[in-house]
Design a protein around this nucleic acid. Structure first.
Lengths: 176, 176
DNA sequence: GTAAATATGTCAATATGGCTGACGTAATTT
DNA sequence: AAATTACGTCAGCCATATTGACATATTTAC
């Protein structure tokens, strides 16, 4: 870590281009392997990554509306439609009419859905736990902070609201 | 950071499921935004994410073979074929017969290719630099370490060889 | 020197997961 | 009563991946 360029005088340093490129590529390799385990499992069910996302987020917030799911996934309702239909058809998700607003079709996981969601998540939990199990300080905290700061400022409030309960660092003062 | 479960007695701690799920989701959100800037630029060229990957990796290792590129990207040559043909056709990449082995078609960026690669990389460099510009210790180093440990052990040697020059931490003792 | 393996390219068919645009229905809000 | 919202669906298109098959040139192995 010798070739850093000093920055705003606040103690932070500007990463060299070479070091930053290494991080860009590590993002690619890490993400590739991060999704490889669930991908394999999904294959045996005839599902894809899109199904995983739906299962995961519905499981995290049971009773969510279709619109909320679309906002999180950032896809169109037509794209979601096919995936959702398959998940419902195969008995992993069911819908319930909203009580307050009967236009809504609130989303829930069936028992099979909960099971599959957990099965898909297990290898990722293991991978992350092992990755952050470092002797040097609080690696998990710093990792979370950096990932959070990778999110575009315009999206941070939404992300923060979603993650919420698991605790995020105080919002920093950068305009990325 | 209260609800951690102590682990192997080496000072590391096991992350709670809740905290780990937050990291899983942050991976998703961070990666989504991380690729959003290049995606926008690529659209104006009629290119997609696949073209970006090819431009990036060829630019990082000019003269690489097609096979080496396939190994890095982990796609089939048929998938690469179309993308490569478009990049060559539009003048961003050119091929040169290998001198030692004349079967090889070594890959290089044209000047336009170099320019586009840099243009696509710039916002990602900025995003990462801002994300790791933290007062708390060496955030970049820790971030790189964690990302590296997210890579499957079976792939770490390849990744390490690739990243190499930018310096990676000593290989740790986990069997992820 | 012939046979086998390697590096690359290409044709064809298929799957997944996105997209836009248009239209319809039911329920809620104004 | 009219406008808006929540949702679903049909149809077509695009990008990116897949498998399998086949061809060509070159290098390596026996």
């Amino acid at each position: 870590m010798a070739d850093v360029i000093s920055a705003q005088g606040t103690g932070e340093q500007l990463l060299s281009e070479q070091e930053t490129v290494a991080l860009i590529e590590l993002m690619f390799f890490a993400y590739r392997d991060f999704v490889s385990d669930p991908d394999e499992i999904l294959g045996t069910y005839g599902f894809g990554r899109a199904h995983h996302r739906v299962l995961h987020f519905v499981g995290r917030d049971p009773g969510m509306t279709v619109q909320r799911l679309l906002d999180i996934l950032r896809i169109t309702k037509q794209s979601l439609g096919r995936v959702l239909k398959e998940l419902i058809g195969k008995g992993y998700i069911f819908q319930k009419e909203g009580e307050a607003d009967r236009r809504q079709r609130l989303l829930y996981l069936t028992e099979a859905g909960e099971e599959l969601r957990q099965r898909l998540m297990d290898p990722q939990i293991g991978r992350i736990r092992r990755a952050v199990a470092l002797p040097e300080g609080d690696a998990a905290h710093l990792y979370r902070t950096v990932l959070y700061r990778m999110v575009s400022p315009a999206n941070r409030e939404t992300v923060r609201d979603w993650i919420g309960r698991a605790g995020l660092p105080g919002d920093a003062q950068d305009g990325g």
